[in-house]
């Protein structure tokens, strides 16, 4: 039963039975015209940690050493309510001596008795403190999410703009663009997935999966347990791994059958992460005459965006990449 139901029951001429008042799940007071408390619901006593004797017959403003003497409540009961039959969800923030600072939604109705000229008021108070706190947390989360989406769109646009069109057919451009795009998709799955969230090993496996060909072309060596990586680093590493893989498929060990990639990672001390990439059984390697965009993307992402170092060793037997990035201990922001 809510306050409106009770209002109807009482208006129909019923007495204010304690039983009915107690069916109200939210704390409720029944006040007379002079704002003296005639009755209170059981949940009023439990919520505000007060006894029956402290409440019934007292003026509402005197309750619990004046804890209900709230300017907003006075405004509601003395100014707003007499001019309207009902006030719904009037928000009040107040420090209550026994329960602390709370946000309450107050609803009130006036009730004229059919048998006499007297007036009663029904006043319910719903504690929405937790709900308000949750809403604030939700707003922050929503802001973060929006920030990530916009950032992601910025990255996608940049990839579209910077993926080269030079000496390429439209079909080739699309292939190159979509390859990078898929790396971002993989990063999203691993950054916010229900499983393997922030897991580097799972990211490496996921990004290299399209290049695995026969099952043995790619070996991901198991690494040490790591703290989950943040979404930003997951996304950047995903792009780097993709560029390594696509280069290997075009020029390196993954361009021939029997060629292999051995990828792995290790912790260097507390605040550094190492990634290794070794190509074997591929064609004989000579260092490229000019640096392609893919290689520049690898180098810039590691050194510029991740603040790390990258070494590309074009050994005759196959490319060896050694990447090292700092992983600072998380700073606790207030």
């Amino acid at each position: 039963m809510n306050v409106d139901d009770l209002y109807r029951v009482l208006r129909a001429g019923h007495i204010q039975a304690q039983g009915i008042v107690d069916t109200i799940t939210d704390p409720m007071l029944v006040l007379d015209e002079s704002l003296r408390i005639q009755n209170a619901s059981r949940s009023f006593f439990t919520t505000f940690k007060v006894d029956r004797d402290e409440v019934i017959g007292r003026l509402v403003y005197e309750l619990g050493d004046g804890q209900w003497d709230i300017p907003d409540l006075r405004l509601l009961l003395q100014q707003v309510l007499p001019r309207s039959t009902a006030v719904i969800d009037f928000q009040v923030e107040h420090d209550f001596p026994r329960i602390g600072r709370r946000t309450m939604l107050l609803s009130a109705r006036t009730l004229s008795h059919p048998d006499n000229v007297g007036l009663s008021m029904l006043l319910t108070m719903v504690d929405v403190t937790e709900q308000v706190r949750r809403n604030v947390a939700k707003d922050i989360l929503f802001g973060e999410l929006r920030h990530r989406i916009k950032n992601l769109l910025g990255v996608v646009r940049s990839i579209a703009r910077q993926t080269s069109t030079k000496d390429r057919s439209a079909e080739e451009y699309r292939q190159a663009f979509l390859g990078r795009f898929e790396a971002l998709v993989a990063a999203q799955d691993l950054a916010f997935g229900e499983q393997h969230s922030g897991n580097l090993q799972a990211l490496i496996e996921r990004v290299l999966e399209p290049y695995a060909g026969d099952q043995h072309a790619i070996v991901v060596e198991p690494g040490p347990p790591l703290e989950p990586l943040d979404p930003r680093r997951i996304q950047l590493l995903s792009l780097v791994l993709h560029e390594l893989a696509t280069n290997a498929a075009k020029y390196g060990s993954l361009s021939v059958s029997g060629g292999k990639v051995i990828a792995g990672y290790a912790k260097h001390g507390d605040e550094e992460l190492g990634l290794t990439w070794r190509e074997i059984n591929g064609p004989r390697v000579t260092p490229p005459a000019a640096t392609g965009y893919g290689t520049r993307l690898i180098q810039s992402t590691v050194t510029y965006s991740l603040g790390g170092t990258v070494e590309l060793n074009y050994a005759a037997t196959g490319l060896e990449a050694t990447i090292s990035i700092p992983i600072p201990k998380p700073v606790i922001h207030s």
Partner: peptide
């Protein structure tokens, strides 16, 4: 700008 790709996009 900390992201290389976004920095390059702005630069271009």
């Amino acid at each position: 700008e900390d992201d290389y790709l976004i920095a390059m996009d702005l630069k271009l």
